[in-house]
Write a protein that binds this DNA or RNA. Structure first.
Lengths: 337, 337
DNA sequence: ATTTGACGACCTCCGCCGGAC
DNA sequence: TGTCCGGCGGAGGTCGTCAAA
């Protein structure tokens, strides 16, 4: 079943069928309808390879997913996949370790699969223009920006929450509940990543509310939002015997690990210690206690990432930098002091 | 840079270059070397679209993922993606709703992307041969079989745990801990799916240990392993005032929802009620209490699915039906009576 | 003026035939 | 006779161009 068969059945030329299929205007309504009718009944599907060939491109959009244990990205990937499908492209995902180089991975993927565009799910925040010359197609940084790097805004697009502000709001929520001795468990304070941004937001909130920062209340776990490291980190904090009434973690899964550590040490949440996080996974609503967390708008982030990418790919639209709002979802893991 | 350019530079014909590139034997060693040398220095990469076109195939392997909220599939997809990458193919995922028709989705995907093979992540258990004629490439059913259908074993491959046995073992574990009044929360007892299989395993265990089945201890939630429905189901059970000391759920996430419902009604787990599940997600180790669950070998299942598919695709190997073992991971959610 | 047909180019592979040694 | 290589045509869909109705 090729375009020729359709043309023959309809009694028109191959050109005409092609024009109909590609929505060219210069086809009469009657012919157009007949062709579409026949395409439907014959169940004809255009040969994508031939299409790609003549257009000297593929319909592939790469998605580089960095970090394996990240449930947040897993949810996002579904939305992105659906949007890419809807637009008639093919999503080509590649999963890499959290310490791998996503730019290199993207560049390889681009050449291997002749990508039309790229979406990065998670990555570093400090690229230089030189590093990014490897990427030759439009790309969108999803869930992170390049705020520590020297990349010009016009050279890339990004979709994320305001990480600094979100951590600020989370901390602020704890403070407004009366907490003053607030601990934080972060992968790193200075790795020029999402972790550093959120940590800075935490510090800003303390400062604005006149709370002195106590370095004993800070745990750096290293790694990249892993649950075992977080569990261990909180255990260290507890062994120090330092006093605190609330704990900030930077993701939902690490919050669950943190709560576990607290509970295993006989501290009940939130009575003995409140816990707040950032992400808003579905499963967090069934944690015990229900997690209080800043919900990232996953659906919207995925949808907008694809929209921006397609707009740049197809219409040469300028880059965009979208900051979406994370909203507090009050659970049972935070209580007033 | 096309095959013509290479031919011109080498002073040979296009046919000869093509023969070299495709490792045909009838080319002299000297010519072969010169062509390969030139391909290397010129950085020539064959046009994949043209190649796919003429071979009327692509390097795409489709993965139809059924059910969105399933964290287990999210983990599996990563393993499958890596294995497909490693083998030099391209993974093309498609996410569909849990009530959508995965065969139709697979057939559409197959034609759209010219798939070489298909992996189904989750699906029905009762296909007939007629339904599967839509699929024209080798495929592997991952995490389920077709035991309720009339498909012949030789017509498809499958990789899964033994669902009946796994639910049996889970129930057995509760019984050996002294439990006799065991409730079960299942999506359905008779939907000819994974749910029914596991439910049957539950009933078999009760029977073998001489425990009378009490229909009051059974909750059907409908749907497909959703947390809200499970939560509601357990609430209904509790409202009935029926007595039970243990609860079986069929997945980790539903177990978390069930524990939440129990705890919200003032029943502590495991003191007032033990809970056991099937899946073995990472996050379940940080639930409160840590979930006791039958761990599915995710990595191995993903790896084996790809291996079997490739073997069939490339070597015409016969179909395989692999039953892997789910192992008990003892947590804190089950206690002796 | 609008609609339609015909055609070549794009790129690669493969089978086939023919020529050369 | 066997080995090596050249050349041709077909398969696929799109798109611009030109011609024709």
């Amino acid at each position: 079943m090729t375009i020729k068969d359709i043309a023959k059945v309809c009694g028109v030329s191959v050109s005409t069928v092609s024009r109909v299929l590609n929505k060219h205007p210069d086809v009469s309504e009657t012919v157009r309808r007949r062709v579409l009718q026949e395409v439907e009944t014959q169940g004809y599907i255009p040969n994508n390879s031939a299409r790609d060939l003549v257009r000297s491109r593929s319909d592939a959009i790469g998605v580089v997913v960095r970090g394996t244990g990240n449930l947040f990205f897993a949810e996002m990937l579904k939305t992105i996949g659906r949007e890419i499908d809807r637009a008639g492209y093919t999503m080509v995902p590649r999963f890499i370790d959290s310490d791998a180089d996503e730019v290199k991975a993207g560049a390889i993927l681009e050449r291997e699969k002749k990508l039309q565009g790229l979406i990065f799910l998670g990555g570093r925040f400090d690229y230089t223009p030189a590093e990014l010359t490897l990427i030759g197609v439009p790309y969108v940084c999803c869930s992170y920006t390049n705020c520590f790097g020297s990349l010009e805004e016009k050279d890339y697009s990004s979709v994320s929450i305001d990480d600094h502000l979100t951590a600020y709001r989370a901390t602020e929520h704890l403070i407004r509940c009366g907490h003053r001795r607030i601990a934080a468990v972060v992968p790193s304070c200075s790795d020029r990543s999402i972790s550093e941004l959120r940590y800075d937001g935490f510090r800003s909130a303390l400062r604005d509310y006149g709370i002195a920062f106590d370095s004993n209340l800070l745990v750096e776990t290293g790694g990249c939002f892993e649950m075992p490291e977080t569990y261990e980190g909180v255990c260290r904090l507890l062994r120090c015997g330092v006093d605190f009434t609330a704990l900030l973690t930077l993701s939902d899964t690490t919050a669950m690990a943190a709560m576990k550590a607290l509970q295993d040490h006989g501290r009940s949440v939130p009575q003995d210690c409140s816990v707040i996080a950032i992400d808003g996974l579905n499963v967090s609503e069934y944690a015990n206690p229900t997690l209080t967390t800043m919900v990232q708008p996953v659906e919207e982030m995925g949808r907008e990432s694809v929209r921006i990418l397609l707009d740049t790919m197809e219409n040469g639209a300028p880059t965009e930098h979208l900051r979406l709002e994370a909203k507090l979802r009050a659970g049972q893991s935070v209580c007033d002091l």
